[in-house]
Amino acid sequence: GGAGTAGGDGGSGTTMRLALNQTEEHPSYTALENFGERFSETTGGRWAIDVFPNETLGAQQEALQLVGDGTVDMAIVSGTQLENLNEDFLVFNLPEVFDSVEHQMSVVHDEKIVGDLYASLEESNGVTVLGGLTQGSRSIYTTSGPVETPADLAGQKLRVQESDLHVAMAEAMGASATPMAFGELYTGLQSGVVDAAENNEVSYFTQKHFEVAPYWSSTNHLVGLDYLVVNTDRLAEMSQEDRAALDAEWTAAHEEHTELWASATEDAIAEAEAGGATFSEVDEEAFSAALEPLADQFIESDTQQTLFDAARAAAE
């Protein structure tokens, strides 16, 4: 078992270690720290959560495996990691499936839609998905000038994560998909190994990419999502009362996170603009039309189709 006794808080409860890939400045860290503090308070110190930021416990793929094993108790992992274990998770990684952060949050915390999906890894991998933290709406930014329609991206090397879906997405939007490690991207944009990248406003600013690729075009092609996964056995150890407290505090946590995210996004836009970035609108319909066929292309099973339909139905 991975949990130790909570020494620091003076209690005799169990401390759960939570692996996070983001820095201490990221909204996810703040929301999760507060989540841990409140959970410890409401359970009278029977439980505590110790957040390890900066990938110190491992990158997402390893962290997920450690949670399954019980070495680490909780982790924030991306949809791609879960998709590698159960392809149904692909649906929420598709472009155009969510219209907005609010739409996304309502879908990924709707028990009727996601109940089976979130329990699907319990038997096979020993992890339970509690829910998600939004990673914001993603758009394209370029080094050479603003983009209005997919045609403007023709011939541009767009950095994507190394996955079939992201490659197909970049190509659907008219660009030449170039997988590249995220850590190399700043230099890559600066030197011209790639011409464009896509991300949320917060990363665009904190990674200083606006310095080298100052043209932000709000394609809003994808709403990013991270999941909170917990070791299934550890959850089972909780009394009913503590489990209810965990769920309640988690709901408060992702709601707080969505607010923090919105203000972080506003700040990022203001600071990037002050730093010389320009934010422009695109022909959203043209991008939607270009991306629409991807869902058909990537959805393979009835379960996936059901999830997709449910998510879209919640948009109207």
């Binding site: 793929q61 495996q65 274990l85 991998n125 190394e162 996955s163």
Partner: peptide, 19 residues
Amino acid sequence: LRAAQGAWDTNLTALPTQI
């Protein structure tokens, strides 16, 4: 072996095999 077992079903992103 423990690490292999834990990642046995985890697909690689680009290559047709498992971690």
